[in-house]
């Protein structure tokens, strides 16, 4: 079992004329928490979406847990190991919280109803809302919905969790409850790649911070160094904008 769980080499992704990624190299080690920051349109979401192949690369390669993302059969294997949490939650509105968490367990993992419900209840307890098991997404607050979405991804027992601005659609008072769940996950040793401008979270949980701009990684550093001694002008400029 090698130590590097995600290896990205020379990743290029184009949308028509737009080059969303212009040659990204990144390696994530097992158990590492990497936070990605950067201005809007810099390619952060695109990078995450390429890691579990919601988008396919135009050039370069991505190897997840030793599996190259090239053939179709590998894509499904990789997706099963990589959970993703979206800014807009994307819960299934026609299913209860519990059913949201059991659906993929049953149709993808072929677990029995009893087992998947038991796992779902454990996860709902873990994210702090077991009492909402039978509520529909529309009956939940944003923070609760996002916690169900995290539980839904965890139910597949992923080795890696990707978070794309998980708190930026939330009201301020709900941000903490979601970040707390993510912090606990980081403490358990989950490998996480998080796009977020929550600097408190980055300081507390990140092993590394990556600053992206215009489709490339501009700077790669630790939380301490980022705030005390950013190397690049662009990083400084960006930090001065988000830090108040």
């Amino acid at each position: 079992m090698q130590n590097e769980i995600i290896v990205i080499q020379g990743a290029v992704k184009r949308f028509g004329r737009v080059e969303a990624l212009r040659g990204v190299d990144l390696t994530v080690r097992r158990g590492e928490v990497v936070v990605i920051i950067g201005p809007s349109g810099s390619g952060k979401s695109t990078l995450l979406r390429c890691i579990n192949h919601l988008e396919s690369l135009d050039e370069g390669c991505i190897i997840v847990d030793g599996i190259p993302l090239t053939q179709a059969e590998n894509i499904n294997r990789v997706r099963a190991e990589v959970g993703i949490v979206f800014q807009q939650f994307n819960l299934f509105p026609h299913l209860t919280a519990l059913e949201n968490i059991t659906l993929a367990q049953r149709v993808v993992r072929k677990r029995s109803r009893e087992e998947s419900e038991r796992i779902a209840m454990e996860l709902l307890k873990k994210v702090g809302i077991p009492e909402k098991a039978h509520a529909y997404p529309a009956q939940l607050s944003g923070g609760q919905q996002q916690r169900v979405a995290i539980a839904r991804a965890l139910a597949m027992q992923p080795k890696i969790m990707l978070f794309d601005e998980p708190t930026s659609a939330l009201d301020p008072e709900m941000i903490k409850e979601v970040l707390d769940v993510m912090l606990a996950l980081a403490k358990e040793g989950m490998t996480m790649v998080v796009v977020s401008h929550e600097m408190g979270f980055a300081r507390a949980a990140a092993d590394r911070i990556i600053f992206m701009d215009e489709g490339v990684i501009v700077e790669e550093t630790t939380p301490e160094l980022l705030f005390t001694a950013p190397k690049h002008e662009r990083t400084k400029l960006f930090l001065s904008k988000i830090l108040h």
Binding site: N52, L54, N76, R79, A80, V82, G83, I84, F86, Q88, N90, L91, F92, L103, A104, V107, V108, R109, A149, R152, A153, M156
Partner: peptide, 18 residues
């Protein structure tokens, strides 16, 4: 139905038809 629904389902490992 928003694209996010298909993406969420696929990212959980479901096939297109599932």
């Amino acid at each position: 139905i928003s694209k996010g629904q298909m993406e969420a389902a696929r990212s959980l490992g479901m096939s297109y038809f599932q």
